[in-house]
Amino acid sequence: MDERLDWEAALAATGVTVKVDRSVRLVALRYFDAGGFGERLRTALGEGIPAPLGFNRGRYGAAEDPFMLVWRSPTECWLLSATAAPIEAISREIAGFGDACLIDQTGGILALRVEGSRTLDLLHRLGSVDSVPRAGEASTGRFADISVTAVGLATTEFLMLVERGHVVHLLGWIRETLTDF
């Protein structure tokens, strides 16, 4: 089996590790009116729509299920969660609501966790310095010639959200880069 196709295996070099996090559920929230939808989001989950190029983290329910809301465009943000509960909560809140919808993208958009002291060295070999978000920011840019939404969890810890069809290509570029690290 061609090891390049095994996209679930972790990649590592001194100062950086890269691994797909299969536990991430991801739904796209789309709304015509950010103000109105933001209120419903706050009602359901306790967090509003993130500011442009930002992300909000929160906890839902008695079980304190962690979730994240990532800004994607003026009419879209993504809800990431390890459990179904936060997703079901917002889904109930907007049921029948004609101004917003929820589109499950779980499995279609994969989350890569990239962390380590040399994370920025790696990211600057995938894309431009301009495209790498600072800690606390989330933005979409061109990495390895494809579109990737990067979330700056900390100065050396990122999530890279990538379309599943491209994950082999992205990991291939990362693998080649780490070989020369």
């Binding site: 196709l5 010639d145 069809g165 082999v168 290509h169 080649e176």
Partner: peptide
């Protein structure tokens, strides 16, 4: 090689 353009799998 396989990275010469972004191929989807």
């Amino acid at each position: 090689g396989s990275l010469y353009r972004p191929l989807k799998h």
